[in-house]
Design a protein around this nucleic acid. Structure first.
Lengths: 327, 327
DNA sequence: CAGGAGTGTCGAAGCGCTTCGACAACGGGC
DNA sequence: GCCCGTTGTCGAAGCGCTTCGACACTCCTG
């Protein structure tokens, strides 16, 4: 089943069929209709390899997903799914690369022309993949922001503003003594952009508002310990900001066992809304929108449109009642 | 950078380079070395599209991942990651398809020759994709087992045996009154293989051993309700089998609040060991091995080796002390 | 030492598509 | 009625690789 079969069936030349399919030259309406009918009748589907050889386009983008122990899988998957979904609406497929392959994986898919572009998640401040991306000349979009963004297209939530938004929310409610419970230590050690920036935003806002504050890395396993320590060392604490999805439950449970919960203790969470346990006030991490926009940026870049640059989405706070005026 | 550049650099013909790369004809050791050096020196990487056009092989396999609300994402991801990792060891890449595209996605990637084969997860008893797979003539491996396995290659944990193993373990410890807490209702409604078979294995074993038993679908949200109901309606209950990762925590917490926990109440879990909360006895769901073996089966099938058939992995039970003799 | 069986290499023919240049056919403008 | 610009279509030349048949050798075997 080749393009020439379609051409014969429709009584035109193969190039005409190709132009009908690509729309790169104008074809009369009657011819277009006949060709489309033949395609339909024969169930023709172009051979992807032949197409990519001739056109130097594969209609495939690569997605590098983080699969480290310290990354919360459901959050990462929300991004991945939204990227796949968005890619399909732009007639692209997605090749899955794992973090584990690192820069070599990028070199491989670029060198063999398997993909038209790549989306990279979980970017670190000094990410080894960034220089590779620059040198490869492969269109790319980062979900996350490294230190040096020169010539890069990045998109992310404005995590710094998100951190500040939480602080301002609590400060506006009269809280003066707050804590930030963040990502696992390893996430900060490898200087993951979103974690660093949230914390920085928190700290700047806390200074600006003149609050007493501490911050603490956290894992689901250490959540209880963190809560106990806060309870012991910061008796006047009235507000907690949690930037760590899987620790939210254990952490708040532990506080509750100390008799501390809303409204006496205000808690709010930074994370994707659908993943936030029901009655918690949160700053949404709009994974779907980020994934979708990353794809759009990439597709534009593949088409030679758009300029490099950093897009930061404005964070929004949804009050679900787990924060209250300081009593 | 083409194969002819390498050929010129090494002083051989393009076909010789190709044979060095593919190993499909014997090439002298000295020529092989020279060619490999040239490849290295020039950093040559074959063009994937050209290769697939000429060889009718893409070295890409498709993976259909389940992205439904009722599927526990971390479990699904363990499979996906192991498939990607295994695929790379066999020199293949992975194209990510979502459940959402259904049979059409399979038709698309098959028709355009984007992939050499496909791995399908989360198979239902009467899965709409199965007939498509049969008609497509695309090599495929199912992780999971549908009702009619005619001409199919499937691999899965022997969930029926896993269910029975749990029952036997409890029965051997003297328990006579047990409960099975399973997947969300929707999982059974769409007749997902693994869920049905585990329950069937449980029920058969329970009958064989003459135990009193009930089974209950469950979600993390309904876990507390399930525990409360069991506590109320089955006061003599001493053993619980949980086949629902995200519900384990809430369910056992709820039992604990009724004052029921190990060793007085024996609990065991069916799920991937690394995801099981620490001190729980479990039947391991070997996601890594299943993914790896699925890839191997598929690669063999692509190479024209191996026969269709169903492979069921023997389940194993790891005693971590959450089960004890009936007191 | 002729004939045959390997062994190693090459040239050329595609694989199925896109795209460039060419060129009819057709209308308008003058 | 002639020239020119459009518009719609076609033919042919690749894209970079694999693979088939051919062929020149070398090495046995009888």
């Amino acid at each position: 089943m080749r393009i020439s079969d379609v051409a014969r069936h429709a009584g035109v030349s193969p190039s005409t069929v190709s132009y009908v399919l690509s729309g790169k030259r104008s074809i009369s309406e009657s011819t277009t209709r006949r060709v489309r009918e033949s395609i339909e009748a024969l169930g023709y589907q172009p051979h992807a390899g032949a197409r990519s050889l001739a056109s130097r386009r594969t209609s495939v983008i690569a997605l590098v997903v983080p699969l480290r122990d310290d990354v919360h899988v459901p959050v990462a998957m929300r991004f991945a799914v939204s990227v796949v979904t968005a890619a399909r609406t732009h007639d692209h497929d997605v090749l899955l690369l794992t973090q584990g392959e690192g820069p070599d994986g990028l070199r491989r898919v670029a060198g063999s022309a398997m993909v038209d572009g790549v989306i990279v998640m979980d970017v670190e401040a000094d990410d080894a993949r960034v220089p590779v991306l620059r040198s490869l000349g492969l269109p790319s979009v980062l979900i996350g922001v490294p230190e040096d963004t020169e010539a890069l297209t990045c998109i992310d939530l404005d995590f710094s503003a998100a951190g500040a938004l939480c602080v301002d929310h609590l400060a506006d409610l009269g809280h003066t003594d707050v804590a930030f419970v963040g990502q696992p230590p390893s996430v900060y050690e490898r200087r993951t952009g979103f974690a660093e920036r949230t914390l920085a935003g928190f700290e700047a806002a806390v200074a600006r508002r003149g609050l007493r504050a501490t911050s603490h890395p956290c894992t689901p396993e250490s959540a209880r310990h963190v809560a106990d320590a806060l309870q012991r060392e910061r008796p006047d604490l009235t507000g907690v900001i949690v930037h760590n999805e899987p620790s939210v439950g254990p952490l708040l449970d532990a506080f509750a066992e100390h008799g501390r919960s809303a409204p006496e203790l205000s808690a709010l969470v930074i994370g994707p809304s659908p993943l936030v346990p029901q009655p918690l006030t949160s700053v949404d991490l709009p994974a779907e929108e980020l994934g979708g926009r990353a794809v759009r940026l990439l597709v534009d870049k593949i088409d030679g449109l758009g300029e490099p640059g950093v897009t930061l989405l404005e964070p929004g706070l949804t009050d679900r009642g787990s924060t209250a005026h300081r009593t």
